[in-house]
Structures are given as structure tokens and as C-alpha cells.
Design a protein around this nucleic acid. Structure first.
Lengths: 346, 346
DNA sequence: TTTCATAATTGGAACGTTCCAATTTCGTCA
DNA sequence: TGACGAAATTGGAACGTTCCAATTATGAAA
């Protein structure tokens, strides 16, 4: 019933060679004669051998495992990020441990510990809200390469890959100003996060650059979700002096803002300009198509994985902080009259 | 610079006991004296020991790893499924390998092989389109418990957890019929999948039950995505005899259908009834809120994980096929005038 | 004190691989 | 035929843990 494991020794016996030779074949070493290689491979097939990577890892004290921990896999931005990571990691012959923390620091601590025990050779982390440099200290001390994505942590001695939130927000608000908007809101997101802070600074920057006043009442935080967007826009529309446009913390919020507008019989794009941030896949197909600052989550995941793999290969490189540039993708939701051709080509 | 690993032996030396005792402490065995346990734990803390699960796995020839392979993590249904799995798997002290196949059989083969090499003790698979029982054969032969989710595979000797697609579709279409719709379309999804087949059978069943004709022209396949929904509804609206309602293959398609309707200046819910399938989180907050057949993806992931863990614990149980029941959640998109209270409580 | 059961501890083998150093095989050339 | 370098193969130790059987310490009963 219970079939016991086939090992290199069994293969060796079947092929009439030593286990060392089998090992060499497994590593496709050039040292082994073609004829014996064939014999060994035949035995491997016949006996249904499956390589025990755990044993190999033990011997070599290294693994082909990388860990990725995200704060909210339910958010399609992070799901896409994970897909991007997975793609390059798989191609490099690695396999990924994926854990979701749901923004819970405690969970994050647990999963990171668990991953260390499993001997991951590197970690990509989109840290939960409130993560501090100290939380990562044991990790960096142990010499495991870590790449922070999306959210950077001040003082952490690790590499990070973030997007240029400041420039993106600035470009978006400039665009709204050019279209003649005078009262522009910033909607959604938790104010105590670095990402919020950066995007908001960009928002402010564009306003002062244009010599326009910035009103604190128009900056309305909320959960960075669709539901949060609904409540944020509701609050904004209760103001005496209503905004006519909004830059939203992210696309999820932007969709929520559209929902909230419709609930008030306002058509996003026509009656109120909305711009998102991230460019998740649905942004393109939504109606109206969402004008947004494209962060390219999948590409970001890929780059993060590449950076991590590079560091793994190099042993231990200096931490580098990469901020990738973003671009404003103008679609319908900001009231633009763009022909769809350009977009369709992409 | 490169600090070498701290092992049980180091701990033993520091605490003045044998490695066997340290091992017992690690397993929190009752055999060890409180005083020595304390000593050992102190040493563990002081030296910054991290448990090498790989070595333990090798010795015990079992692991605390489960694999989950999904066909499209970009689809939030599957992302939520993964979140559900992750939750129970983490709580059980396991860690999950997550791989995305992107519907590619070849990728699937690779990742499953890789997971086997890593010694996963069980596998949850949402198989890529076109997967056959033979593809899983080596896996089941090796005695690794496998749970198929979402999509079942005929003839595969493994457990499966699917939803009652037939009953769900039937309930949805009955609801549309009750509201007086005469021409009801079935939109989206790849016709060569079992899930499509089952939902479509439910759709047909409800029509014949009501003595209504079923028109093949009203059954329009497409990619099971938002973009697919847009094209499907476009095609439907070009028919001479247009439908007034649609059951969509899944929520993503349903959202796409809403987009497509708006592009034609039709308001989903008011001018055209649309019902989705899955009940992803956005379904509730979208405007109009999506009437949909709730499959509870996260709960499904949880149940799949529980089923798998049960089988792992039991050694090897008989494969069981669970089809979990679904329920129609009536919201706005089908034109219902429901008060939102009931829903808000959930 | 001796005797025993029980509690606590321990050394060594084992898990399946890789790596090193050593050995054998082979073809070529003198 | 012998010698020699290159090519191919090999045995054994090692990776860090767990498990088993065996040993030692402890304390209660005689």
C-alpha cells in the first residue's frame, strides 16, 4: 500500500552504478559518460524516481524557495503583483511561498518566522501597515536578502522597490488643473501610511505650483477599498463647496467613488472627473474607462523578483532603493475626449 | 560576515545538555524537566537559533507544506480562494506553495512536479483548462492527497470540492423568469469547460421547466473575464430579438456586461437585468450591487483546505466529491427593489 | 541500605542528497 | 609493452534533525 520512496541508491542499484554517478547525472554534469547517463535516466524513468529537494537543500544549505508576503491578496493590485513575482520566480526554477497577512503585524511575524525555518533564500515583502524597521532586523541580520515592495520602511537596511507616488499624483492633479478644475479633492487611503503621504504631497505640490489654495477639507481619508471610496465621496459631496474632480488614493477607491457618484445621479467622467492610481486590469475595461496613474503591478512584481534573484545570486549586495516611474494613462473617467485607438494598441 | 547556522548541537553545548534533549524541548515533549527546558529555551533565545524544518522533514519524511495551484490568480475569485486556503493552512501550522498556471497545462505540469520534489504533503488544485485525469495519475499513485477545487475532472481518483453550478444557475434563471423576462441570455465563459456545461444545463433546465423555448443564439461564450463580458453583451445586443436579461458565467463577466450595457446607454438593473455567479467581494459594493449566485470563494478555499488537512491526517482516505450548495443573493442588478437592510447584516 | 519503578537524559543511526578526494578505466604515445 | 594524462567513477563524510534503545538519576517503598 504505502510505497516507499525511491532514492538515488535505488537508481544506482538499478543502473549498476554508484550513487555519486546518479547524483552527477541529476546535476547534468559533463563528467559522466553518455552511455551511463542514458542508463541512469532510464532507471529514473522506470522506477518513477522523484528528486528530494529537501535533502539536497540540507546538504548544500541553500534552497530554491523564495517567500512572498503581501498585506492583502484580496486587493487585485497585490494579486497581480504576486502573479508577476510568480512568473519570474518560476522561470528561474524557484518556487514561491505565498502568505497573506491581511494587514496584521502578528500574522506577518509568524509567516516570516515560518519562512525562515523553511530556509527561503530570499523574501519579497509588501509590509503590513505599521511594520517598523525593527521588525525586519532579525531577518537582515541573518543575511537573507529582502526586497520591500510597494511600501518602503524608513531605516530598514534592505532593498526596496516603490513607485514614484509623488510624481504620479502631481501629474494627475496637473492634468485636472489643465482641464480647468478649481476644486480638486484627494480621496481615500489611510493617512498614516507612507504611500498616502507621498501621493498627498504630490497632490499638494501640483496645487501650490499652480498657485491654487489647498483646502484640508478636500483631503478625505478612508479605507483603501471600493467601499472606502463610496464613503469618501459621500463626505466630499456634503461639503458646502463641492469638488468637481478627485484624485483617488488607488483604483479601488476610484471605482468606489464612481459608485458613490452614480448613487447621487452623477455620471463619472461627464459630471465629475475621477482619476485613480495603480492601473489594475479592470481600469481599462470599466465604463467609463478609468483614467489612472499606471503603476503596472505585474511588472512591479517581476522587477522585484528580478532584484531579489540578483541579490541571491550575488550573495549579499548593498541594499538599493529603486523607485520606478509611473505614467498617467488618460481614459474616460476624467472627462477626456480621447479616441480609444491609442489605448487599444497597448 | 557570513554567520554560520546555529544548530541544535550549539544549543546543546550552550545549555549543557545533549542534542536529543534539545530536540525534545523543540517538540515540547513532556519528558523533559522544567528546569532544563528553561535552560534550553534560554540558549535558543541567546544564540538566535532558527529551526531547520528541512532537516526535520528529511528525518521524518513528511513536511508541513501544502501546495496550491490555481489557473488564474488575476481573477479575484481565485485570489479569494487562495486567501481562504491560506487562512486555514497557516492556522494549522502549514505553509503554502502558491503557483499560478495561467491556464497553461505545461506550466501546471512543471509546478506540480516541482511541488512534489519539495515534498508537499498535499495539493489543492484548480486545474487548468484541458487537464485530464491522466495528468494527475502520477500524483495519486504516489499517494499524495489531492483536492480538486472549482473544476472537477472526470475519472480522476481524487477528492473534489465544487459548487452546485446546476442548481445555482437554475435558481438564477427562475428568478429572472418570475420577474417576467422572456428572453434571457447566457453570457460568457468557455464552452468546453465542465463548469460552463453545468451552469448552462441549469440555465436550460429552468427554461424548459417554465415551458419556455431555449434559443442557441442567446448562449454566447467568451473569455470568463470582464473584457469577455463586454464582447458577449455586444454580440447579444446585435441580435434581432434582443434579450432583456442575462445570467452571466461569473461575476467578472457580469461586470463586463454592465460595462457593455452602459456603453450602449443602458442602465444595468433598470434597463436590463444581469445576474452574476461567484459573489466576489466587489459584487456587494458595486453600483448597481450585483445580484449573483454566491459561491463564497473564500469559504470554498477554507473548506478545500480543511478537507485536504483531514486527508493528510488520515493517511489516505477515500476520495470524496463534495458539491457545496450555493444561494442566489438578490441585489440591484437584476432590477430588484430590495431594501438593503438584509444584506447589510450579512 | 537495597530495590524498583519512574522520570529524565543520552549517544548513535538514520533520512536522501552532495561534495571531496581517491580510485579505476581508457586511449595514446613512446 | 609500459607509462601517462584525461575521463569516468566511486566510497564515505557531511548537512541538521528525529527516533530508538539504552543509560542514568530520582524518589518511594521495602
Amino acid at each position: 500500500m504505502v510505497k516507499e520512496r525511491v532514492t538515488v541508491i535505488d537508481i544506482a542499484r538499478a543502473a549498476g552504478v554508484s550513487k555519486s554517478t546518479v547524483s552527477l547525472v541529476l546535476q547534468s554534469s559533463s563528467l559522466v559518460n553518455e552511455a551511463t547517463r542514458a542508463k541512469v535516466n532510464a532507471a529514473i524513468r522506470d522506477l518513477g524516481y522523484v528528486y528530494n529537494r529537501g535533502a539536497a537543500n540540507l546538504r548544500q544549505s541553500k534552497s530554491k524557495i523564495i517567500g512572498i508576503v503581501v498585506n492583502d491578496l484580496t486587493n487585485s493590485f497585490f494579486a497581480e503583483l504576486a502573479v508577476g513575482v510568480d512568473a519570474v520566480v518560476q522561470s528561474a526554477g524557484f518556487v514561491q511561498f505565498l502568505a497573506n497577512t491581511g494587514e496584521k503585524i502578528e500574522r506577518q511575524r509568524e509567516v516570516v518566522a515560518s519562512m525562515r525555518e523553511h530556509g527561503v533564500s530570499g523574501l519579497i515583502v509588501s509590509p503590513a501597515r505599521g511594520t517598523e524597521a525593527a521588525d525586519l532586523a532579525p531577518l537582515v541580520e541573518s543575511g537573507i536578502p529582502v526586497v520591500l515592495v510597494v511600501r518602503d520602511i524608513a531605516g530598514a537596511q534592505v532593498s526596496s522597490l516603490t513607485s514614484d507616488n509623488h510624481a504620479g499624483a502631481m501629474a494627475a492633479v496637473r492634468h485636472l488643473i489643465e482641464r480647468g478644475h478649481q476644486r480638486i479633492a484627494f480621496l481615500g487611503g489611510f493617512p498614516d501610511t507612507a504611500v498616502f503621504e507621498a501621493r498627498m504631497r504630490g497632490y499638494r505640490g501640483a496645487l501650490v505650483e499652480a498657485g491654487m489654495p489647498v483646502s484640508e477639507a478636500l483631503i478625505i481619508g478612508s479605507a483603501p477599498s471600493r467601499a472606502g471610496g463610496v464613503t469618501a465621496v459621500e463626505q466630499a459631496m456634503m461639503l458646502a463647496d463641492r469638488p468637481t474632480a478627485a484624485l483617488c488614493f488607488n483604483d479601488a477607491v476610484a471605482f468606489g467613488v464612481c459608485d458613490g457618484l452614480r448613487a447621487r445621479r452623477l455620471e463619472p467622467g461627464a459630471d465629475f472627473a475621477v482619476i485613480g492610481f495603480d492601473d489594475v486590469i479592470e481600469a481599462k475595461t470599466a465604463v467609463p474607462a478609468l483614467t489612472t496613474v499606471s503603476v503596472d503591478p505585474q511588472g512591479m512584481g517581476q522587477r522585484a523578483a528580478e532584484l531579489l534573484l540578483k541579490q541571491i545570486k550575488a550573495g549579499k549586495a548593498e541594499p538599493e532603493a529603486i523607485v520606478s516611474s509611473v505614467r498617467l494613462v488618460v481614459r474616460q473617467s476624467c472627462g477626456a475626449q480621447v479616441e480609444r485607438k491609442r489605448e487599444a494598441l497597448a
